[in-house]
Nucleic acid binder design. Structure first.
Length: 485
RNA sequence: GCCGGCGUAGCUCAGUGGUUAGAGCAGGUUCUUCAUAAGGACAAGGUCGGAAGUUCGAUCCUUCCCGUCGGCACCA
């Protein structure tokens, strides 16, 4: 049996989940489910980026021990997945002892390859933020935006560096040939453009002091912690047993797809494959990069107060309505906008009046008609050739769109079938007795069973409900109409 | 500043070097009642960002301009 290993990005647990995580979790879940339905053995991994300095700072602010703080927040991400019907098979925490062991082994492999060396790093350091800044990150007074009026200090620090430059050409080749496939193409081009400049080596450790003694120690040097990017990316490996359970690791690695947001493209398209090349390990096959969400046309921000609580959204509208909106309205590889108005408009038009109403009318007609039985809904093909053809073409379009992660197009395609059914009903008037009444209703039931099947990866709960109504007769409305705001 | 994407009906977007530029949603008229005041049909709606150029002919090619979004390394 073929295996399929897919990951979400590792959420940064310094704060609570927002609508962006919702989008990514749902997209990842659709890919995972579609492969499960193809009969592949699938592993979906997520995890918590728990070793970053900002977690320590956020915990300090909250007045909670760091471990407790990251545990508490990580749990919220797990809860969100559960609420969304997203099935994580592994949730690998960055603070787990297994992961610590795993990343140290990874480090040692890179070190053996001769790619790690010590060098003094000098930069502008803000004591308030406890981080280094580059000149272009500063305001006109050469101060950081968080702490205006406070002078930055020039601080020199000895760190370990990774020979990124060594892998430049190799990476260009791999990406150009799609051996490391980057979707969409605009992201691929950006990465290639970046790789055409001369690459600098990157620092991959922090002093204990600067890391606030939180994180994973550098093997053989207890005075330094492994820089979070190297460390956090390895969650993709440690979660499937790298350095811990060779058999498991061999079974799952490399990842088939990493799903990420556009802001972390470089880490995944350049640093991560370079680390893996250095360690002599296989590279992930595909990076799928999604865009960012805006809310009412504006950036999500706490100060604007436009942050959408994904838990509330699910509670208010139901899990599949939420999944539907984010998959259908947000272009999968571009930026998209959320607003309650858009949400409710789409809900009423597509889910209530479209899908829900169609199921309702067809099931009722089947029950009212003396000539048909619901149980006869599962034919091998439709009586009507036109229906047969449209089902086949929607099947094909859907599969192709899924292959390239164009979820919005896949759903659009399914909705063409829904619309076709509505027209067909109007044209054939199967609520009236006629010679062809029975065949028409059977075809509609057949089409519905296909719609349910096609919806499985996207709206799993709804797909199941439709299948159930096709067997058991009419149940409650799938998507009760909302009164518009 | 440099590089790249985008700018098409009220909204979201598709599209092609050549007769009347498309879809969905919203709005309009109308038909229908199996259905969640749902569904169908029809009509309306665009100087395809602006200017110049190439061409027999450009929304689609070139240049410039305007607007907008993104990339330009240690911030995850």
């Amino acid at each position: 049996m073929a295996k399929f290993y897919i990951t979400t990005a590792i959420p940064y647990v310094n704060s609570v989940p927002h609508a962006g995580h919702l989008l990514e979790f749902v997209q990842t879940d659709v890919i995972a489910r579609s492969h499960r339905l193809k009969g592949e053995e699938v592993l979906l991994l997520s995890g918590g980026d728990e070793n970053a300095l900002k977690n320590v700072q956020a915990a300090e602010q909250a007045g909670i021990p760091v471990q407790e703080f990251v545990d508490r927040n990580a749990q919220l991400f797990l809860d969100l997945a559960k609420n969304l019907n997203v099935q994580f098979d592994v949730f690998q925490k960055g603070s787990s002892p297994e992961h610590h062991l795993s990343i140290q082994k990874f480090w040692e492999l890179c070190d053996k390859a001769g790619d790690i060396y010590k060098k003094s790093y000098e930069g502008l350091y803000c004591v308030g933020c406890e981080t280094f800044y580059t000149p272009d990150e500063l305001n006109e007074n050469q101060e950081c935006f968080e702490h205006p009026g406070r002078k930055l200090e020039t601080v020199a620090e000895e760190n370990y560096f990774f020979k990124l430059s060594k892998y430049q050409e190799k990476l260009v080749g791999l990406i150009e040939k799609d051996e490391l496939r980057i979707v969409p193409i605009t992201r691929k081009n950006e990465v290639l453009a970046f790789l055409k400049n001369s690459l600098q080596d990157i620092s991959i450790s922090r002093t204990n002091e600067r890391a606030k003694n939180w994180g994973v120690s550098v093997p053989g040097d207890n005075s330094q912690k492994i820089y979070v990017w190297l460390e956090a990316l390895n969650i993709y490996q440690s979660g499937v047993g790298f350095g811990l359970d060779e058999e498991k690791y061999k079974k799952w690695w490399p990842a088939d797809v990493h799903v990420i947001g556009k802001g972390i493209t470089r880490f995944h398209a350049v640093y991560w494959p370079a680390f893996l090349l250095s360690a002599g390990l296989p590279l992930p096959k595909t990076l799928f990069v999604h865009g960012y969400l805006t809310i009412d046309g504006q950036k999500m921000s706490k100060t604007l107060g436009n942050v959408i609580d994904p838990f509330e959204l699910v509670k208010k509208y139901g899990v599949d309505a939420v999944r539907y909106f984010f998959l259908r309205e947000i272009p999968s590889t571009g930026d998209g906008d959320f607003s309650y108005e858009k949400f409710e408009t789409r809900y009423n038009a597509d889910l209530a009046s479209g899908l829900g109403n169609l199921v309702s009318r067809v099931v009722t007609m089947a029950q009212n008609s003396a000539n048909t039985s619901l149980l006869r809904s599962s034919g091998v093909s439709a009586n009507n050739l036109e229906i047969q053809h449209i089902i086949e073409s929607v099947n094909k379009e859907c599969a192709e769109a899924l292959e390239e992660f164009r979820f919005n197009e896949a759903l659009e395609s399914i909705w063409r079938l829904i619309q076709f059914c509505d027209r067909y009903i109007e044209q054939k008037r199967p609520w009236e007795e006629s010679a062809e009444q029975r065949e028409v209703i059977e075809d509609l039931l057949f089409a519905l069973s296909h719609i349910a099947k096609l919806l499985q990866p996207f709206l799993p709960e709804t797909a199941e409900k439709i299948t159930e109504q096709l067997k058991e007769g009419k149940g409650e409305s799938l998507f009760p109409r909302l009164r518009q705001v």
